[in-house]
Amino acid sequence: MVDQQKRIPKWLKIGAAIVALLIVVIGWKAYQTFLGPNITGDQKYVFIHTGDTYDKVLKKLEGQHIVKDIKSFDLVAKAMKYPTLVKPGRYKLTEGMSNRQLIGNLRGGYQEAVKFRFENIRLKENFAALLGKNFESDSTTFIHLLNNEKLANSYGFTKDNFFTMFIPNTYEIYWNTEPEKIIARFHEEYQRFWNADRKQKATALNLTPQEVSVLASIVKGEALHRDEMPAIAGLYLNRLRKGILLQADPTVIFANNDFTIRRVLNKHLTIDNPYNTYRFKGLPPGPIMLPSITSIDAVLNYKKHEYIYMCAKDDFSGYHNFAVTQAEHLVNARKFQQALDARNIKK
């Protein structure tokens, strides 16, 4: 045995050692290229747009410093046939991910859905801007859809009340979902929200779900405190039943398209606009803001009382003084006007 080892040439031993070393080096390099960490922590997501080519993806990964070594990424991507399998989407990045992990997600289309939540939205334009910020399509595309009469009609709405279809909640939607399908997703939630119980309560009020939401938007505009919403809803329902003008200040502000108004004056009341409930009887044609679930349920579960007047309290607590007679209301209104004057709030 010893004699055989002695007969192995030295050069062969050296060659074998070199080959073994090369195998180790190549193996280590392959491991690092495919499985070693190559993703930086500079970005939380990579956004692959519809129509992006592989070259655009490479430029994006390099330009945003998403990968440390773009050449190794390119090598693995081609080995995994990713250049012909580019899929749009919003893909989550984790610092230390390997090329193989990221490319596996990219080529498989394994993106992370957007958790889209909204509330306290005043105008369609505000909503369109928020949608454009969170999804691939821009705000111009979304505002066009929100103002599309034909689309609104297809869901059973008018162009004016279409905004009531969007129920504030948290939605999980893929970033590159087509805008029309995003609208359809909101309609699914609307149908779930308006269950048999809510529809029955709306019918008892002699209102459609859309009309309930329009009234709820006014209630939301008036109420600074949730616990007062049912009382405010009850007041407006009393006015509707009696055929009295709603005379809701938030509708006047909306009609004037001036949301800086803190004190509604006579000059604001003269505007010829169907949203001016000081001039036009009944509900306006659409919501003055996106109603909240709380305000909708406040209308459906309104507080029964005889009040038909209300005025903000002069302590600026955000609550209201309610009244049955105009004489009582005028006393409350005078107190509030004096409080406004004392604070030099003129407009």
Rank of each mutant, 00 (worst) to 15 (best):
T40K: 03
Y82I: 01
D314Y: 02
P287I: 04
K56D: 15
I14T: 12
G234I: 01
N276P: 11
F118N: 01
D341L: 14
Y110H: 14
K115W: 11
K29Q: 10
V212E: 01
E188D: 14
H144T: 15
N321D: 15
H49R: 15
K201P: 05
F163I: 09
L265D: 12
L130Y: 08
Q111P: 01
Q5A: 14
D160R: 05
E189H: 13
L235S: 00
F162A: 05
V219C: 05
A16P: 01
T40G: 09
R226P: 01
I232W: 01
H329Y: 10
Y31W: 14
I173T: 06
V324Q: 11
V212Q: 02
K242T: 07
T203H: 15
T164A: 06
E189M: 12
T177E: 14
V331R: 15
H49Q: 15
R239W: 05
D74H: 06
K303N: 13
Q64G: 07
R226Y: 12
L106N: 01
K78N: 13
Y236I: 03
M1K: 09
L61Y: 00
E188I: 11
K220E: 14
N344Y: 12
V331P: 06
W11E: 15
E306H: 09
K181N: 12
A184E: 10
D197R: 07
I103T: 00
H329E: 10
Y302C: 01
L123Y: 12
I173M: 06
D297F: 01
K115M: 11
Y275M: 03
Y110D: 14
G104R: 11
Y307W: 12
V2I: 15
F186Y: 05
P291E: 02
H329D: 10
L93F: 08
K71D: 13
L21P: 10
L85M: 08
R90F: 07
I26S: 08
N134E: 09
N332T: 12
F186P: 00
K267A: 06
D315E: 11
Y110M: 15
P9E: 05
D272L: 14
I345P: 08
T170N: 13
D249G: 00
K92R: 14
L300M: 07
A342Y: 09
Y54Q: 06
Q4R: 15
K124P: 02
M80Y: 02
N153E: 14
S292N: 05
L130S: 06
P284D: 02
M97P: 03
N105H: 11
T141P: 00
L340A: 08
P285Y: 00
E172P: 03
I253F: 02
L106K: 04
A20V: 15
P250W: 03
Y45P: 06
I261Y: 03
G156L: 05
P287L: 00
L61A: 04
I173W: 04
G36K: 02
G104P: 02
H305M: 04
A333Q: 13
D69S: 07
I39T: 03
L61C: 02
F336N: 03
K199D: 09
V24C: 07
F186E: 00
D55L: 10
R122N: 09
R122F: 05
H49C: 13
V252Q: 03
K81N: 14
V219L: 04
W11V: 13
T84C: 04
V264T: 07
N153F: 05
V2C: 14
K347F: 15
P88L: 11
T177F: 08
F193Y: 09
Y174S: 13
F166I: 01
M165C: 08
S217T: 06
L130N: 07
I8C: 11
Y31A: 05
Y309A: 09
L235E: 00
